[in-house]
């Protein structure tokens, strides 16, 4: 908790984006320039929680999501890995904004469907396979401290595979995933963050305190 509370003290930033960069980001994402300013203050807090380097490390990401920097969570790891577009072990500000933009209520549904597919495609094969699905079900059961028998888990996974795998080849491709989401839109409900609709109103102090380089 102490480490998390330290997030609240914004430290000196080392990678202050230029105003022009914010304009470009705004033009290429669902955010306005003011919202990107607000996101920058949020980013500064998150990225200096543990390491004072204005980069979000996995431990800092876990601390924000799970309130514990050392807690294991398959799904938080997957989200982090997708945000870390450069695959260099940290999330930079631009990666943070571009990835969060997919979670904006105004972002295209197609982008949300694709992002969710990539989250679930653990081995990045282009398919969600039976074993991956089972691994994720087992992970959420562990996370929730719930116990199901192997037969029950298999039954859930098999039923889902039968429902989604319309081509019958034993794996779920992007097209089948999209069809499944069209039938059950709630499957991507966690791909939309209402907070992002108007982050400047939700966090007005961010705007007041933000100092982009002109």
């Amino acid at each position: 908790m102490r480490a998390f509370l330290s997030c609240l003290s914004v430290k000196k930033n080392k990678q202050k984006p230029r105003y022009q960069e914010a304009i470009i980001l705004a033009s290429e994402t669902s955010f306005t320039v003011n919202e990107i300013k607000a996101l920058y203050d949020l980013f500064k807090k998150l990225s200096n929680c543990i390491y004072d380097d204005s980069l979000i490390h996995k431990e800092e990401f876990h601390l924000a999501l799970l309130r514990n920097s050392h807690k294991q969570n398959l799904f938080a790891d997957r989200v982090f890995d997708l945000f870390d577009v450069k695959h260099n072990g940290v999330i930079e500000f631009e990666e943070f904004v571009r990835s969060l933009s997919i979670f904006h209520p105004n972002a295209p549904k197609e982008d949300k469907i694709t992002f969710a597919f990539r989250l679930y495609d653990l081995r990045q094969t282009g398919y969600i396979e039976h074993e991956e699905l089972k691994e994720m079900v087992l992970a959420i059961l562990t996370e929730s401290e719930l116990t199901l028998s192997d037969e029950e888990v298999e039954s859930i996974v098999n039923k889902t595979m039968m429902e989604a795998d319309s081509k019958g080849d034993g794996k779920i491709d992007q097209e089948e995933w999209k069809e499944l989401v069209e039938k059950n839109p709630a499957l991507i409900k966690n791909m939309t963050l209402p907070y992002l609709k108007d982050i400047t109103l939700a966090f007005p102090s961010f705007i007041l305190n933000t100092d982009f380089e002109e």
Binding site: E143, S155, V157, K159, L180, N184, L187, Y195, A202
Partner: peptide, 24 residues
């Protein structure tokens, strides 16, 4: 069981990015 596996998985705390926006 009558749950879709993805319905269950989506309940993970690791997917709840609202945690990023909590002030304290």
């Amino acid at each position: 069981p009558c749950f879709n596996a993805f319905d269950i998985i989506s309940l993970s705390q690791g997917f709840d990015l609202s945690g990023l926006f909590e002030k304290d």
